[in-house]
Computed example of a mutant assay.
Amino acid sequence: MGFDQPKLVAMYIDRRLSGLQAVQTLARLNRIYPSKERTYILDFRNTIEDI
C-alpha cells in the first residue's frame, strides 16, 4: 500500500531528489484532510530547476 499520511503538512528535505523520487516524495503532502489548508516544504538541497 505504501506511505499514506493525510495529516502530514510539513516536510524537511536534506538530500538530493530528482525524477520519480522527487515526485513520489513531494506527493506525500498532497493528501486531503479536514481542516488541512496548506503544506510546507523546507528544502536544504534542491533548486527549483532540480525538481
Rank of each mutant, 00 (worst) to 15 (best):
L26W: 01
N30D: 09
E37W: 06
F44R: 13
I13C: 06
Y33K: 09
M1H: 13
A10G: 14
D43P: 03
M1N: 14
I48P: 04
Y40H: 12
Q5K: 13
A10M: 11
N30A: 15
R28M: 13
N30V: 06
V23E: 10
R45H: 11
I13K: 02
K36I: 05
F44W: 15
M1P: 07
L8H: 04
S35W: 09
L17S: 00
L8V: 05
A22K: 01
L20Q: 15
I13Y: 09
L20F: 11
Y33P: 00
E37S: 10
N46M: 02
F44N: 06
A27M: 12
K7L: 10
T47Q: 06
D4C: 14
A27K: 14
D4V: 13
L20S: 15
L20A: 15
A22N: 00
L26V: 07
I48E: 12
A27F: 10
G2C: 08
K7G: 07
R45V: 15
T25M: 02
D4Y: 15
P6E: 05
L20H: 13
L26D: 05
I41N: 05
P34S: 08
R31C: 04
R45K: 15
L20C: 08
I51C: 02
T47H: 06
R38G: 03
N46S: 06
V23S: 09
V9L: 06
S35V: 09
D14Y: 08
G19E: 03
